[in-house]
Design a binder for these strands. Structure first.
Lengths: 338, 338
DNA sequence: TTGTAAGCGTTATCAT
DNA sequence: ATGATAACGCTTACAA
């Protein structure tokens, strides 16, 4: 157990007062070069490491920002984390990452941790209705930015993808390929992107004059297994869809697995498009058509906004564009028609 | 900016002393039910949230443990993080995740953060020679456990995969398939797994009587792009290998990309085996043969060991077995021979 | 059971 | 430029 070498020890060894030691160690200019060298030497020799808790207690500012993602294992969030962290580091802040694992209780646990730790600010990919510690966070007026998702009724700057546009592109593309019955594998309605993409899907189906059979709409939990389940349900229906649209990449992965298990060939037997692209979609057979979101940029942007909030600003939310990457998985059922 | 509602406010509102308030709030039995209800009510009404820094300053124990992985975007580490976090949560600890991004300086930055924050302990997937803050950490006697990787000269409990066995399995498999010239895409020698897998490869090549042409050995940095680079170098040599063995999955991904870019078909034109399996390897065309490591279990085990260390124990290191998952990518050049 | 006060490691104020 | 000392928010003897 850390046998604490404190600033007192350093001061004693350097033969100065703790005040002087503190000034030297925190770069206060009001110090003699004499003191500087001796204190630095003492600190070095003793292996002194300032206690961030005590430091933060006195002078507000921890230099740490908390990033709460909803699923670390989803490459999309890993990329967001990567981007956010890089941006933070450039600005001299460290990022503490936490994983809600798509669970509201776990989200509250980590929110509580960040709040108690008095981080300088936090970036959250929220879920749920916005009760619990999410509410506490805004009440405590902790600098906060939402990423990927938002919560109704929360006036918090956010960085999100153009869900409406992305889904519209995907559906129009599938329609152009001749598909009229598209099976939709959506996310929970308790998550803003789940709602936004679902609603966009319904609108796009109508706009393209496709079959609006509600049996074509399923809802998963944004994780792989639920994508497989939804796929099974969809294709074992009476009139199975000729193409599938998954609302995120883990669920698309699940769909792929299920399709393969059933001996169905993606792209020819049934089309598949994923919302959210992933590095390896291009390597699959056939390569998967996907709506690309700039995840890394989302993370960087969220961090930029957060730093603005911390600095006292009130930045506008930003919506990042999506891009449809057409590959072969959407050629499907009606290649001859297009 | 958090306008701090402290325990004093709570005490005042409840009409008790801070001592009593503190006792109630921290579950000390020496309290009257009268005090309990009033303090709890006051805390609730005020939205009081204890300051973890002040609390930790007084009574050691932060309840937080730090997990430093080398690359969050590598699914392998994401799985480790997932496993470790679950185990921590079960034991009532929160996990703060940080990303070294395969960079020694960044590793030091986060090590410093954890150390300064006085976390209860940390799990690290280390890199580099073991100078810097890694050394500081053991000198400070902070409970520490290594995961996936180790550092020479550090007597720290660790959880690693059976690198030797995994590589041996992969090489023997490739040899059985008739490959005699295997191109190896290794990791940095500054990382223990880079060294272990390389050495195991050399031994396995000898053991199987394969071509030990040193031109077949390349070294990347465990990230995707370097896998592509290494692949390009390998296959444009005079006598290109008939199969590739990548020391981790991101580099295997890079190899795949490069192969495709050159119009080479994995599995038939050239074999490929990856050390470390990934969910989507099974969905590729052809499915990729891989050495599976139980990443999640590695994370869980590391956390278990760490909790033992925190509790004062000195657990033994554990080496987890690997398993060769044979798929089609290794059928390659010599299917007719096997 | 409760209040008072000391102390955790820092920084900041105020003299000097 | 430096040294005391108060203060940050909390826990924990020590008394009462």
């Amino acid at each position: 157990m850390t046998k604490a070498v404190t600033i007192k020890h350093v001061a004693a060894r350097a033969g100065v007062s703790v005040g002087t030691a503190s000034r030297v160690l925190s770069g206060n200019p009001a110090t003699s070069s004499e003191a500087r060298t001796r204190v630095r030497a003492a600190a070095e020799e003793l292996g002194y490491r300032p206690d961030a808790r005590a430091r933060g207690l006195r002078s507000t500012r921890s230099n740490a920002i908390g990033l709460l993602v909803s699923d670390v294992r989803n490459p999309f969030f890993a990329d967001i984390a990567y981007g956010a962290e890089r941006a933070a580091l450039r600005a001299g802040h460290v990022t503490l990452l936490a994983n809600a694992d798509e669970d509201t209780r776990q989200q509250d646990t980590y929110l509580d941790t960040f709040l108690s730790q008095r981080v300088d600010g936090m970036i959250v990919a929220p879920q749920g209705a916005g009760g619990g510690n999410l509410r506490s966070a805004v009440e405590a007026e902790v600098p906060l930015v939402f990423v990927d998702r938002t919560v109704d009724g929360f006036d918090v700057p956010s960085v999100t993808a153009d869900n409406e546009g992305g889904i519209a592109q995907a559906v129009a593309h599938l329609a152009a390929r001749g598909h009229t019955r598209i099976g939709y594998i959506g996310g929970p309605r308790s998550i803003s992107t789940g709602r936004a993409r679902h609603d966009a899907f319904v609108r796009a189906v109508a706009a393209n004059g496709l079959d609006d059979d509600t049996g074509l709409i399923t809802v998963g939990d944004f994780q792989s297994a639920s994508g497989a389940l939804a796929t099974a349900r969809l294709i074992s229906g009476e009139r199975p869809p000729t193409a599938l649209l998954a609302a995120d990449s883990p669920m698309a992965m699940g769909a792929l697995t299920e399709l393969r298990a059933r001996g169905l060939r993606t792209g020819s037997d049934i089309g598949l498009v994923a919302f959210d692209d992933t590095e390896w979609f291009a390597e699959l057979d056939p390569p998967i058509t996907a709506v690309r979101q700039a995840a890394r940029e989302m993370g960087e942007t969220a961090m930029r906004l957060l730093l603005e909030v911390i600095a006292g600003g009130a930045p506008d939310s930003v919506v990042l564009p999506t891009e449809l990457i057409v590959r072969e998985s959407s050629g499907a059922a009606a290649t001859e028609l297009s």
